[in-house]
Design a protein around this nucleic acid. Sequence first.
DNA 1: TTGATAAGTGTACATTTTACATTATCCAAA
DNA 2: TTTGGATAATGTAAAATGTACACTTATCAA
Lengths: 243, 243
Amino acid sequence: MSLNPDPNPVDTLDHPHIQEYFAFGISVDCVVFGYDGIDVKVLLIERGTDPFKGYQAIPGDLVHPTEDAVTATERVLKDLTGLTNVYLEQLQTFAGVDRHPLGRVATIAYFSLLKIGDYNPKPSSWATDAQWTPIQDLGEMAFDHKEIFDAALERLQMRVRQKPIGFELLPAEFTLADLQHLYETLLNTQFDKANFRKKILAMDLLLAMDKTQKAVRHRPARLYQFDAARYEALSKRGFHFEL
Amino acid sequence: MSLNPDPNPVDTLDHPHIQEYFAFGISVDCVVFGYDGIDVKVLLIERGTDPFKGYQAIPGDLVHPTEDAVTATERVLKDLTGLTNVYLEQLQTFAGVDRHPLGRVATIAYFSLLKIGDYNPKPSSWATDAQWTPIQDLGEMAFDHKEIFDAALERLQMRVRQKPIGFELLPAEFTLADLQHLYETLLNTQFDKANFRKKILAMDLLLAMDKTQKAVRHRPARLYQFDAARYEALSKRGFHFEL
DNA sequence: TTGATAAGTGTACATTTTACATTATCCAAA
DNA sequence: TTTGGATAATGTAAAATGTACACTTATCAA
């Protein structure tokens, strides 16, 4: 026995109890990743009210009636960090019946990468509670947010191998050692220095600066920038980044 | 000026106009792929009513208040094909403000792979209109369904290289030439027969049957089965399928 | 018996990956 | 000015993998 005697309610919206089908809230949640040169971190809110008071939560909000999901996520990010042009990718939608104790809310999860130095908490909003948390030591998380986080991390680890998005987490100028350490931390592996460097440079995606590190007590490393325009051009010719 | 004076409506649901935030419908749409030995096909509905009467549409339905998204999708698939255990993967959620002319409906898109021989249209439902359509010659599609289809095909092409899900589209027993032709069709490429066969067999994912093709006018090829249990075991040891 | 057809195998060559050794450059301290 | 510590940066040989293509095998049908 189906709850749905109408053969095709989504098309015509003329089901006798159609209003019951339009009682959903839709939220967006955004897992924001950063990297400080040592750890991969995630930006989390400590909840100040029930339900889940004191638990860590992924920043998010209900989608407004007049905005689409990406717009809502960008709004959340702007309110949270002051930033507008950050890497954003839709992750997965979580629509379990009981995932929110106070109503039927489906959440469209995103993840975002930003340069941790650009982070600029907005003191006038709930973002004051936002904390960069190393991904190894998360506390208990509200709702199904642990599940969302796990999915985001897994997706990030996968994506970072096949698209040159690691650079979104680094300062504009970085050394090859910085880049290698980021990948090693993110993917929980070790790379041979010589081979890593050959592989990356062979892709021809980096712009060598005429600068080096300062204030190090050893031979200073050359600084590089990611050449986004070059990546665009190569992509059109069938190039695809790997590892 | 924000529509949202409450700092955190999704958490507490105590916004003064909260009911406006709970006026969404959520649907699921499922792009169903099949393969008949020649073409990759997709199962589409021809719409009998406005809006978009006469256009092709991806099968879907509104999510009921008491079911989650996967359950809704499995229900749609069951109604459509009679099948219950098919490969199903969440694709992406489309939540544009104006994507549905009759109301604010966000759709969670899935894609599904099934053995075309198992397809068994249910004559008592709207599935009677369902048609296997070769993916090269789609007609005009309703709503934003073309966009959804394109995303599904792209995802399928990507996924089929890194997970052994091509077998979901083949009969339980198949020849290596069948498998090669499937991949060539799906990915729009050509493989060297000898190398393809070496690569696949080296993965040790196929069970060689003591059977061969019948009724062919040349040397009959050996039949194989996909060994799902073996794949499980290998996966746990870090193996990962590629191409 | 033979030819057509596709199944299935072998191999040499090119390319990429891997492991590890070596050289280069800067700073700081002697 | 020299030397040692540290990491940057490069070189190379062996191993592994990918590629191209020729060759052999099995079945059917004429």
